[in-house]
Design a protein around this nucleic acid. Structure first.
Lengths: 168, 168
DNA sequence: TATGGAATGTCAATAGCACTGACTTATCTT
DNA sequence: AAGATAAGTCAGTGCTATTGACATTCCATA
């Protein structure tokens, strides 16, 4: 039946398959972020704060410019969020050693604790999905997500992994 | 080397794998929505309008309540967006035949055209990722996304597919 | 048929997140 | 010394979302 339809109108099926992907992507992202948002709301923070905490935690010593490149928001937008995180004691900054114009960002102990708490919730849901789907499906999941993503972000991830393997 | 690390500390690797998934999910969703957002901005619309157009197009005759359940926003939020789409002639409504309190929503020809234009852009990127990744990876992608998603949304998708197969 | 509840709509106030534009400071590079 | 880069700041604006309170229409049922 499905094969008949595929034979009769492969373009329709392809379109339907893609639209299902879009729909799934919406649901998954919605549910992926919902629980963390609830925690953030209790602390008077929002999803934008989470994103900063997440990427500063993942790339300690990241500069403001690199963060802007990841988040794709304006510096004015980042400024507010980052200022609140600094004021709240979640993020620390120090001048760059090589280039003293730069402010290199890292998480304070409190920031690390919050990052852990937020990531735990998201990891739990993702881990369950990984477990159910199996290793092969997980590999496919990552391949397709990587295909949607801009190249330079993939390079950044690859560089991070390589650095991690070097330093242990 | 990677195997050594896995042997020494499997929990670290598992955590790293999950965090890479979170990072990829962010990048992919960011890039998945960016191009459509640019088109919407030209029309004075936002991403919220896109979501409504997308789901009304996908589930013609959907009620306001069902739409609220999909989007997980308040009716006040939906009201503004839906009102603008009705005023702009993108969405049409009719009273429910079975329950006349309901407003059943569908896309006007203009709404269909816009939906097509927006979906085209997202489908193009997704199709490229699918093509590069291969059928098996696509299956894994969908399985994992489904594992992240709440059950009732998966049931909705399944019901839609079944209905589509019945009616051709 | 009256009552409760469901589906929807509306008004008002507020907050989070983002934008553009214009300007400043400090520092690096050449 | 001059120009470019990294970052910050001030001001104004818009989209998306929230809570809370209240109104309307209609369905289901006791």
């Amino acid at each position: 039946m499905a094969d008949l339809k595929a034979g009769a109108n492969p373009l329709f099926l392809r379109d339907e398959e893609l639209r299902q992907g879009i729909e799934l992507l919406f649901y998954a992202y919605r549910d992926h972020t919902a629980e963390a948002d609830a925690i953030l709301a209790e602390l008077g923070l929002g999803r934008a704060h989470h994103r900063v905490i997440y990427f500063v935690g993942r790339y300690p010593g990241i500069s403001v410019g690199e963060l802007l490149d990841i988040l794709r928001i304006t510096k004015q937008s980042l400024s507010r969020v980052l200022g609140e995180l600094l004021a709240g004691g979640f993020v620390e900054q120090r001048k760059g050693a090589r280039d003293r114009r730069q402010r290199l960002l890292s998480l304070s102990p409190a920031g690390q604790a919050l990052e852990q708490r937020l990531s735990d919730i998201q990891c739990r849901r993702l881990a369950r999905a990984y477990r159910r789907a199996g290793a092969e499906a997980v590999a496919g999941f990552r391949t397709v997500l990587g295909g949607i993503t801009e190249e330079r972000d993939l390079r950044r991830m690859a560089a991070r992994t390589a650095a991690g393997e070097r330093s242990g």
